[in-house]
């Protein structure tokens, strides 16, 4: 029953949500709203469990002096220094606001900004017209870059139009194809999960 019960819950919940999309009997839409509420409440508890589990993991890292255990101290400090201030002052209190503005935001921005340097370096090393496909990709990238920056239209007023055309015509066609393929895949996987054919999520293998 330990294995079957989760499968039954998934099957029944999934079926109710799917049927509610097409039919309106037995007050199904209201039932789906209730399921949605349960899901929100459960995810809140999952957040708490995640915090407890994360704390256990990092406390063990520190206790056993595992590789990079000092970073675990930083993680624990980040969690437990922020928490009491939020509880005491609410998220719009002066200390939580200061922490977000002066710790979280600069770190997040800095990490993302580093990507910019790597992207420029990678573009220089990899964008070579080695064959026709690579040449098309490179030319499209250059045209989009010129179209997206004001310097492009200062050089030639047609760059934004060319850039727009690339984005709205060939790019849209390609993206639609990729999306249709992905959604068919998602649908097939969902059906397999509902029918219990795909069980990797239970932790018992597929």
């Amino acid at each position: 029953m330990q294995k079957e019960l989760p499968l039954i819950i998934v099957f029944v919940s999934g079926l109710v949500v799917m049927l509610a999309k097409f039919f309106n009997f037995w007050n199904l839409p209201a039932l789906v709203t209730t399921l949605d509420k349960w899901s929100i409440v459960m995810s809140t508890f999952a957040m708490l469990m995640g915090m407890i589990e994360l704390s256990r993991l990092h406390v063990n890292n520190i206790r056993r002096r595992r590789v990079n255990w000092t970073y675990s101290i930083v993680t624990l400090l980040a969690i437990y220094l922020y928490l009491p201030f939020v509880l005491a002052q609410t998220p719009d209190g002066p200390t939580p606001k200061w922490m977000v503005a002066n710790v979280s935001q600069p770190i997040g921005s800095a990490i993302y900004a580093i990507l910019g340097f790597y992207i420029v370096s990678a573009a220089y090393r990899s964008f070579k017209a080695r064959n026709l496909e690579a040449a098309i990709l490179m030319i499209a990238a250059v045209l989009i870059m010129l179209g997206q920056a004001p310097i492009g239209e200062t050089i030639w007023s047609g760059f934004p139009k060319v850039s727009d055309w690339i984005l709205t015509v060939p790019n849209s066609a390609g993206m639609r194809g990729i999306n249709i393929g992905a959604y068919i895949g998602i649908f097939a996987t969902s059906i397999r999960v509902l029918l219990g054919l795909e069980r990797s999520w239970t932790g018992s293998g597929s």
Binding site: G116, V120, A123, Y124, R125, F127, K128, A129, R130, M138, A141, V142, M145, L146, Q148, A149, P150, I151, G152
Partner: peptide
């Protein structure tokens, strides 16, 4: 930020051109 983006894009394009000249 637009002027920075303009010059940034020009730098990338310049480097791509230099890389391709070297490649050929």
């Amino acid at each position: 930020g637009m002027d920075s983006q303009s010059i940034g894009h020009l730098i990338v394009i310049g480097l791509i051109i230099i890389g391709n000249i070297g490649y050929f």
